[in-house]
């Protein structure tokens, strides 16, 4: 039986898109990786791993030169750098309590100028594994599935990190209010 085929759509833009991402961000990627790994060879390997991941998912990625692309690249590289270092971080898979109540105090705190500034500072102090996943989920609205694919983590880990990140920030706000 003769195989019947359909001509695949020509997508030279994927190749050009990768070229642009690579040329625009290769130095950024290396410097971010170096800031975590402090080893040129390991940093270069991390960059290579990320570029391979980018190549495999190129069609879904934002174009080079956008803020979204830069944020995405930075998040991917530093999470990969952390993984490659095999940092001794063990994810605590907490049961997610959807019925957890936010107090009115937290709401009034977060709506105040001081409260807002505090939360920005607390976000910057968060471990990058929480900060980055919250950014991907809340700012860029990636689905859990997409986040798992980008960061090579399980669904449970992704959900747990999002939950824990939010919980830490809420506790900080409570702490600020009680001062």
């Amino acid at each position: 039986m003769i195989g019947f085929f359909l001509a695949l759509i020509d997508e030279p833009s994927d190749r050009e898109k990768f070229n642009e991402l690579y040329n625009t961000y290769n130095q950024l990627m290396f410097k971010v990786a170096m800031s975590i790994m402090h080893n040129e060879a390991l940093a270069q390997e991390t960059v290579q791993d990320c570029l391979l991941k980018i190549a495999m998912t190129i069609a879904d990625l934002p174009a080079a030169g956008t803020k979204r692309a830069k944020a995405f690249i930075v998040i991917m590289v530093r999470n990969k750098a952390r993984d490659n270092l095999k940092a001794e971080h063990i994810d605590i898979i907490e049961p997610i309590d959807e019925s957890e109540i936010i107090s009115n105090d937290i709401v009034s705190e977060i709506l105040s100028d001081m409260g807002y500034k505090h939360i920005v500072e607390e976000i910057l102090k968060l471990d990058i594994i929480y900060r980055d996943i919250l950014s991907l989920r809340i700012i860029y609205e990636y689905s859990i599935e997409e986040i798992c694919s980008l960061l090579d983590i399980s669904e449970n880990t992704a959900k747990s990190r999002i939950y824990r990140g939010r919980k830490i920030l809420k506790k900080c706000l409570e702490g600020i209010h009680n001062e």
């Binding site: 130095q27 971010v32 803020k67 944020a71 936010i102 807002y116 939360i119 900060r131 809340i138 920030l169």
Partner: peptide
């Protein structure tokens, strides 16, 4: 409603902290 308010403000705060980080990274590069 409280969760929605928290999420809205969190989104703005995350964006601001990310922008700040990216500026610092640009300076480093």
């Amino acid at each position: 409603l409280k969760e929605k308010i928290f999420d809205l403000v969190l989104k703005e705060a995350l964006q601001e902290s990310l922008d700040r980080e990216l500026r610092e990274i640009d300076e480093m590069v």
